[in-house]
Amino acid sequence: MAVDEATVRRIAKLARISVSDDQAHAIEGELNTILDWVEQLNEVNVEGVEPMTSVVEMSMKMRDDEVADGECPEKVIANAPANEEHFYLVPKVVE
């Protein structure tokens, strides 16, 4: 399952990482090297094997329905690159 440059561009778009032409070409090579290497997993017979969902045998902890957090807008926006009146500010989004 070799990756071509168009695929690199498609996944870079999905991952929201801009890549230049040179980078796309280099990444294509690197990804193919890695993907060729992981191909060896196809040797493993996984028939009837359940995929791992949690490495530790335990049941999920649940919390009670209590309000014990939030109401800290200063903390929420403390590190924001741009904010206004406790809102995060971003470039105009067109829906």
């Binding site: 399952m1 990756v3 695929t7 690199v8 996944i11 870079a12 999905l14 991952a15 990482i17 990444i27 690197e30 990804l31 890695i34 993907l35 992981v38 997993l41 196809n42 493993v44 996984v46 094997v49 359940e50 995929p51 791992m52 969902t53 490495v55």
Partner: peptide, 28 residues
Amino acid sequence: RRVLIGTYVLSAGYYDAYYLRAQKVRTL
């Protein structure tokens, strides 16, 4: 590199071949 690999192996059409298989191998 890893974000792109990760995006690729989860993307439509490749999930079963890569991610699901890897998690099965992990069980083994």
